[in-house]
Simulated assay, not measured.
Amino acid sequence: MEKVLSVKNLTKKFKRVAVNNISFDVERGNVYGLLGPNGSGKSTTFGMLLSTINPTEGEWYWFGQKGTDPDTLKKIGAIIEQPNFYPYLSAETNLKIVAEIKGTPYVRIDEVLKTVGLFERKKDVFRTFSLGMKQRLAIASAMLNNPEVLILDEPTNGLDPEGIIQIREIISNIAKQGITIIIASHLLDEIEKICSHVIVLKEGNSIYCGRVDEMTNNHGYFELKAENNSQLLSILEESQWFSSVTLEGDFIKAQIREDVSLSASALNQKLTEKGIFLSHLTKKKQSLETQFLELVKNTNNHA
């Protein structure tokens, strides 16, 4: 797979170390998440990659070329800060101004407005837009120059649930066009739903880089309930199938061991043979959130 971005040992020190020796690759056509809490180095990383912040050490390559020159920037669409449009001008007029700056033909304006679902509102002035619509117009402006890569810094920040879903759908539709997308977010749920790959940052350090589905590629756990939960609990604890068995409220959570392959129907059959009849049985996978918390906990233990 072709790399559109390769980051090698990137470091930025202010009064403290904001980004500490991070390395990762971004392959064409995927959606990457830069995940971490506020202050973990996401915006600083983007600043360096777009040449608005000078690195202390390290280097990066866009499309095989070292650094970020003006020609490279023409291939990248980015929203790093809050949308900055003229409040008393229409969406269309605002995009015409952006098109003039970028040297992009006006014909792209209707296309990008349709992409973000604002074509019907193109004559409306910017100040009448909701926060979600303003964010969608910002994405439209970043798409004007038909970029190969789209960079979005916290694209759903401050939005209500409906606005978050709209942005998520727009990002998915843009990704289907083959555009590589890099999203910075502190929201695990957002990364899990949108991204194919994730780079996890903690206090400027990269603690995981890889596919989202590999990060959540655990055997999962069963959630069970029976009329006699205490008997069920002791049978599960005696079995060799689970690494841990805990009672959580009315349900028992049984974590499947790494070396065990066990379906819900097979477990139900084994328990029935022992005289246990379940009123509830579901097999679940750990969420990205659980994986993330374990990852952070492990790095704390090693620190």
Rank of each mutant, 00 (worst) to 15 (best):
K283V: 00
S244F: 00
S263V: 03
E258I: 00
E238S: 06
V260T: 08
V26H: 08
V98H: 12
L233S: 08
Q135E: 11
N300R: 06
L201Q: 04
I167N: 01
I53M: 07
S265C: 00
K74F: 09
K102A: 15
E294C: 10
E248S: 13
V198T: 11
S239F: 02
H302E: 14
S261T: 09
E203G: 02
N228A: 10
Y61I: 04
E57N: 11
E92W: 12
R16Y: 07
T56L: 08
A18V: 04
V26M: 13
R168Q: 12
V245R: 05
H197V: 02
L293F: 14
I171N: 00
G163E: 01
L293I: 15
D250A: 14
S23P: 10
S23E: 13
R108G: 05
T115K: 12
D250Y: 09
I179S: 03
A264I: 12
K202S: 06
L152T: 09
N268L: 10
N38R: 04
G103P: 12
L73N: 02
I97F: 15
E237G: 06
Q82H: 14
I199Y: 12
S244W: 01
R257M: 01
N84A: 15
I199S: 15
Q135W: 08
A99D: 03
P147G: 07
V98C: 12
M1S: 13
S243Y: 00
S51G: 13
L236E: 03
F129G: 03
I79P: 05
S263I: 04
G163R: 00
K297W: 04
E203P: 00
A175T: 13
L150K: 08
K270V: 14
P87M: 03
E203S: 11
I182T: 05
L152V: 03
